[in-house]
Design a binder for these strands. Sequence first.
DNA 1: GTGAAAGCGCTAACAG
DNA 2: CTGTTAGCGCTTTCAC
Lengths: 344, 344
Amino acid sequence: VQPSSRATIRDVAARAGVSVATVSKVLNDRYGVAAATSARVREVIAELGYEASLVAQSLRNHRTNVLGILVADLEPFSAELLKGAGDAIRHTGFELVIYSACGHAIDHVGWERRSLTRLSGTLIDGAVLVTPTVIEARYAAPVVAVDPHTGPCDLPTIDADNLSGAKNAVEHLLALGHRRIGLVGGRRDLQSAMLRESGYRQAFADAGIRVDERLMVDGEYDPEVTRTVVGGLLTSRRRPTAIFAANDVSALATVDVAGSLGLRVPEDLSVVGFDNIPESALSTPPLTTVEQPIREMGHRAVDLLIALIRGERPGLTHVTLDTRLVIRGSTTAAPPPRRQTGRQ
Amino acid sequence: VQPSSRATIRDVAARAGVSVATVSKVLNDRYGVAAATSARVREVIAELGYEASLVAQSLRNHRTNVLGILVADLEPFSAELLKGAGDAIRHTGFELVIYSACGHAIDHVGWERRSLTRLSGTLIDGAVLVTPTVIEARYAAPVVAVDPHTGPCDLPTIDADNLSGAKNAVEHLLALGHRRIGLVGGRRDLQSAMLRESGYRQAFADAGIRVDERLMVDGEYDPEVTRTVVGGLLTSRRRPTAIFAANDVSALATVDVAGSLGLRVPEDLSVVGFDNIPESALSTPPLTTVEQPIREMGHRAVDLLIALIRGERPGLTHVTLDTRLVIRGSTTAAPPPRRQTGRQ
DNA sequence: GTGAAAGCGCTAACAG
DNA sequence: CTGTTAGCGCTTTCAC
């Protein structure tokens, strides 16, 4: 009996022998519908399995009760963040749409501006932007950024203490006796990456040691890019005895490359990452890394977004959470000095 | 200059001094627009930062190039599955919308039918349903189910070999000398849960041992529910020496409850889970569990969905992937018989 | 109480 | 080449 395509409000109206306006009223519990009519309409709705199209609805209404989270890709960091976001949304009455550019993003700077523009005003009441590639304060809907872009930014943001985290990581390596410590940098457009680099530099400065710029490469938080640049770094004549990678994904890629070059981690190369994604504890060896509370960041971002949507003016619109060094098996004392300076 | 709300195609048209139809043509690269006009329009588009509303577009067109994944909630299993889905979608030209009912789902059986109806036909070209609560083959758009509902189901599905997995898990416990093995069952509406229970029973049958129905409780794949029922089980007079939990989330909750009751895992209670979510390897002790290839399941589901959307008729519309027992630290040999039969 | 009509932003005929 | 028009599914005045 049912047509293969979805039933529309018109199908319901026709079948119930009323106008679409009446059906709409029933749907939205508006006053001014006779009890009998209402009952009849509900019956038909159930019969047809009718549900209002979210798209059509949100084209008319401006409030949808749907939150958006925009991620460039679904990798461990964003997946972890989503769990926290889910925790926060549960029982708030909001629903959630996660929009992923799925890699399109990489070549297309500003993907989230595009996506956000396409979705906001219609479909979503506000959005959380994860590692956005642009700074822009003016949007049609409330927006919260997680791990924001560099540059002045009036968007409410959630991030972690990247500077101290990175500093601690490098201090840990220095304390183990390492001096030739490489840096695999992150996406240079993100504050987090720049702060992690600053932390690296500060640790050296505090120790009174000069950094060797030739040991700094750019991994862009990307495993593939990291593979390439780390390959170069580790086969160069003066390869480092330790590497601080700006996120776990690049750290894991680094460990992998080291292995394929016949270098043992941590005996020949110590590696520290950043993030503490679940995968890092599971790798062989388990990764020493800087933990940031990813789930909590997702949770906080959603809390803040909801407050904004409700028109509250939250006191704190820029939250920075603590980081913490987690020492596992990928770091150990530096090899004796003669091996460091000698040719490999 | 810009209004605070988003620019529409009309704003662009007005500003460029053309009709909306012309703008639309430029937007969609249709023929029949003078080069000069086209250039002028593009200029205005850039100037205004205009992007077509996905909602309005998909209300008109029926093809959107957007895939949907519907999850009841964002927990470790679905998060892991999303990573696999992301892998599959990357470079396909499709974008992805993940729709999460965020816990609303729990009280509302059929949430995915509702959501799917609200989204399909408009907004998405097809969807992957994760642990759906209903069987229904007729939808407006192609649909693939992961870990499907019980009952006959003509939907294309992706799942894992739940029966063997569970059987292996229980055989492992039996081999360790356990006889009083509890079962924390899963959602009784899902095939996976029922098959895991069957595997449990089969292992006992093959060993020629009768199962004790009093040792079987329902955790519904939910940590809270599990806490309650396992609490009862572990404080009963004849508590089991081992528990097979139908998924890792319940297994981890079981370990937790045991701990709070003063029972050591694995010395006083062995625990086996199912799924091998990242969290299971990270827990203390690391969880012995049955691995199912969650990421691959996500990947396969998307591959299949895309094939369906493209109108191909894929040969295999019901894929069952292998499972594998991963032995870690939460299981050990059963305590000597006298402790088993004696009162605790 | 109920329905006709306008319009949300966009696209696809079809005239001009 | 360009603009006018109709309509996607829905909600909301505003007459009847």
